[in-house]
Computed example of a mutant assay.
Amino acid sequence: MKNVSLYNHFIVLIMVCISLSSCEDVIQADLDTGEAKLLVDAEILWQKGTDGAVQTIKISRMTAYYNPETPKVSGALVNISNSSGTQFAFEETAPGIYTCTSFVPALNETYTLHVAADGQVYTATETLMPVAEIDHTDQISNGGFSGDETEVSIYFNDPANITNYYLSSFITPVLPYTEYDLNGDELSDGNAIKSDFSHEDLKPGDALQITVRGISYQFYNYMNLILSAADSDPFSTPPANIKGNILNQDNNGSPALGYFRLCETDYIEYVVE
């Protein structure tokens, strides 16, 4: 299943907004180039019904705004350890792509990410969170804010008396980026939770790749900031300045961008009727 970086998602939003509001003349601002911070895309996904052994971490570097290529970081040392000290090594299989084929996921287990790159060591610790199984789907033709869009919804039954947070993603042919939807169970504990996507250009035969993740409260807050920034003024503070959990072990060093997260997931492919 294809996945899209949250940072790429935000950049696409900026470019779309600019293109919709621009005049005929193109103005390219002379922007300062900031620090080329490390960007670690470390999402461990354990799809229900699989062993979760194959996992991938991507490491790149921030670059100038107008640079179409994201610099990949090669030669890093990457591993994840669990609470008992077992280490899972990630080997570089392509520039900036690090893969493990023997990862052992366990629900509610605590894992620590270790990344050594450019003489710096970065670490992050998170817990692998469970997720409720997708129960059923629904489609209506009068959905969306204006009531004239095709809307596809998934429903999952939240476990009672347990605090849970969810992140759903929708990959569709009508958008160049992944759409995300956050949910918590503060007001719906033990009940069905709905997550949906709507768009006026959805048509019969379009396939939606839908994934729901169980996430931690900390990652829920992080994603809430990311999505709030992406949905606001495109010229406001970008999500790149939102602090993640990947810390530089050098007290004087800069933290890496990104968030180390581990999620049990459920996935379906829905074809619009």
Rank of each mutant, 00 (worst) to 15 (best):
Leu13Trp: 07
Asn224His: 10
Gly52Tyr: 05
Ala42His: 08
Tyr270Ser: 06
Pro173Met: 05
Ile268Lys: 03
Val212Arg: 00
Asn82Glu: 06
Ile140His: 00
Glu35Gly: 09
Phe260Pro: 02
Leu262Phe: 05
Tyr65Trp: 13
Tyr111His: 04
Phe219Gln: 02
Gln139Thr: 12
Leu247Arg: 01
Ser236Cys: 09
Glu91Ser: 13
Val40Glu: 05
Lys2Met: 13
Asp135Ile: 00
Leu113Val: 03
Leu202Pro: 06
Val174Tyr: 05
Pro105Met: 06
Leu39Asp: 12
Ser83Glu: 12
Asp206Trp: 08
Asn252Ser: 14
His114Val: 05
Gln218Ser: 13
Tyr165Ser: 09
Asp135Ala: 08
Ile11Gln: 11
Ala116Ile: 14
Leu187Arg: 01
Leu202Ser: 08
Asn221Ile: 14
Gly147Met: 09
Asn251Val: 13
Asn183Ile: 08
Asp148Thr: 13
Lys72Trp: 03
Pro204Asp: 11
Leu77Ile: 13
Asp201Ile: 04
Tyr165Met: 09
Glu269Ala: 07
Gly205His: 08
Gly34Met: 06
Pro71Ser: 04
Thr237His: 00
Leu107Lys: 12
Pro238Cys: 03
Phe235Pro: 00
Leu128Glu: 10
Leu113Gln: 02
Val78Met: 04
Ile162Arg: 14
Ile215Cys: 10
Ala192Gly: 10
His9Pro: 00
Glu35Asn: 13
Leu262Asn: 07
Thr127His: 07
Asn251Pro: 09
Leu247Asp: 05
Ala53Ser: 15
Thr99Phe: 05
Ser22Pro: 00
Leu202Met: 09
Val115Glu: 10
Ala53Met: 07
Asp30Leu: 04
Ile57Asn: 07
Val174Asn: 07
Ala53Pro: 07
Thr172Glu: 03
Asp250Ser: 07
Thr70Gln: 12
Lys203Gln: 15
Pro130Asn: 02
Asn142Arg: 06
Glu133Trp: 00
Glu151Gln: 14
Glu43Val: 14
Lys243Val: 15
Leu107Asp: 10
Arg261Tyr: 08
Gln28Pro: 01
Gln209Ile: 09
Asp201Trp: 14
Gly144Val: 05
Ser84Trp: 04
Asp189Arg: 06
Gly75Glu: 09
Gly144Leu: 06
Lys72Tyr: 05
Asn221Cys: 14
Ser81Phe: 03
Asp41Pro: 04
Pro68Tyr: 04
Phe170Cys: 01
Asn221Gly: 10
Ile171Gly: 00
Ser146Met: 15
Leu45Ile: 13
Ala229Lys: 12
Ile59Val: 15
Ile18Leu: 11
Thr172Val: 13
Thr137Pro: 02
Val115Cys: 12
Ser74Thr: 15
Pro176Met: 11
Ile57Gln: 07
Tyr220Trp: 06
Asp41Gln: 15
Ala240Cys: 02
Ser232Tyr: 02
Ser21Gly: 09
Asp41Ile: 12
Ser5Leu: 01
Ser153Met: 04
Met223Asn: 09
Leu6Thr: 08
His9Gln: 08
Met129Gly: 00
Ile226Leu: 13
Leu38Glu: 02
